[in-house]
Simulated scan of single mutants.
Amino acid sequence: MQPFRNLTATACPLPLANVDTDQLIPARFMSRPRSAGYGDVLLHDLRFDADGAMRPGFPLNDPARAGSGILVARRNFGSGSSREAAAYALVDHGIRCVLAPSFGDIFSSNAVNNGLLPARLEEEAVEWILAWLQAGNTEITVDLEACSVSAAGRSWSFAIDPVWRTKLLNGWTDVDLTLSHAAAIEAFAAADRARRPWAWLPDVPPKETSQETPAA
């Protein structure tokens, strides 16, 4: 994954609470292959009407918000089912950070595993940023190293699990995170083998496979 350290980007206000994973990507779109991308169906039923036409008043349809890298929403973002495709849809649309007072737990984990920062910001700060964006302003800076968000000369701290922060800063998956402790794991295994040799199976060479042709 691409590391996330500091992002200055157009931000899109989404002044809604309880945006769940079924709203982020309706289930009927999840049969498409991952390689086809999910960005065009992000928040589909809120962005488009029954005839497939864009709803002009929806924030993500605003030409001024085209290419937004940051989404600002109200509490309980990403609640609902555990579908990882909700994170895919955001990332494929170009969103690299969501600011909200709270998130669904499983969604947050899925987001981090896909390089998307779920930054928990105080509700008062979120409301100020939403109002500022709705007034026509667009650009926000998110600094993961400092765990801060800044706009219009103001700055706020946000919260994120420290392990998730480490993964995002380095662009690591869970496997990469484990491998970062490889030396410590090997040292523990060597010490444990010396301390409890009886608990370890002996090193047995693999059996040779016979190349003989069976008799008819």
Rank of each mutant, 00 (worst) to 15 (best):
N170V: 01
A53W: 06
S68L: 00
E123P: 11
T166L: 08
S148N: 04
W172S: 03
S150D: 10
G57F: 06
P63V: 00
K167H: 07
V98H: 05
W164H: 14
E122C: 04
S79R: 08
V126G: 06
D105N: 12
G69Q: 09
W164Q: 15
A152N: 15
I95M: 11
L177M: 14
L60Y: 12
S150I: 02
E124G: 08
E84K: 08
V98E: 13
L144C: 04
K167C: 09
F103W: 06
G78L: 01
T141K: 02
A119T: 04
T141I: 03
A151L: 00
G171S: 10
N114R: 07
A87R: 02
G57M: 00
D161E: 12
W128H: 08
A152M: 01
S109D: 15
V91W: 03
L144F: 09
C97K: 00
T173Y: 08
A100K: 04
L117R: 00
L117C: 15
P118S: 07
R75W: 06
D143Y: 10
I140P: 08
G171M: 07
S109R: 07
E145S: 12
V142D: 12
A151F: 12
A86Q: 10
V175F: 14
V163Q: 13
V149Y: 09
N61R: 09
A85G: 12
A100T: 13
S108Q: 15
A66G: 08
W132M: 00
N76R: 14
A159S: 14
G94E: 06
S157L: 03
A86S: 14
V72P: 14
R74K: 15
I129A: 01
A151Q: 02
A66P: 04
W172F: 11
A53I: 04
P162M: 05
A100W: 12
N113F: 04
L116V: 08
S68E: 05
E123C: 04
L60D: 12
D174A: 10
A85P: 03
V91E: 06
R55T: 11
L116H: 10
W164N: 13
C97Y: 09
S79F: 10
L169A: 13
G67Y: 05
A146D: 14
L169P: 09
L116K: 05
S109E: 14
A86D: 11
W156G: 00
F158E: 13
V142F: 03
L90I: 02
T173N: 13
N113W: 03
S68C: 10
L116R: 03
W164Y: 14
G136F: 04
Y88P: 00
K167A: 10
G80F: 08
P56D: 02
A151T: 06
L168D: 11
V98A: 04
E127H: 12
S148W: 05
N170Y: 06
N170A: 12
G136P: 10
I129E: 03
G136R: 10
H93D: 11
D92Q: 03
A66Y: 03
S102H: 12
A152D: 15
G136K: 13
S150E: 14
N170M: 04
E145P: 02
G67C: 04
V72Y: 09
D143E: 13
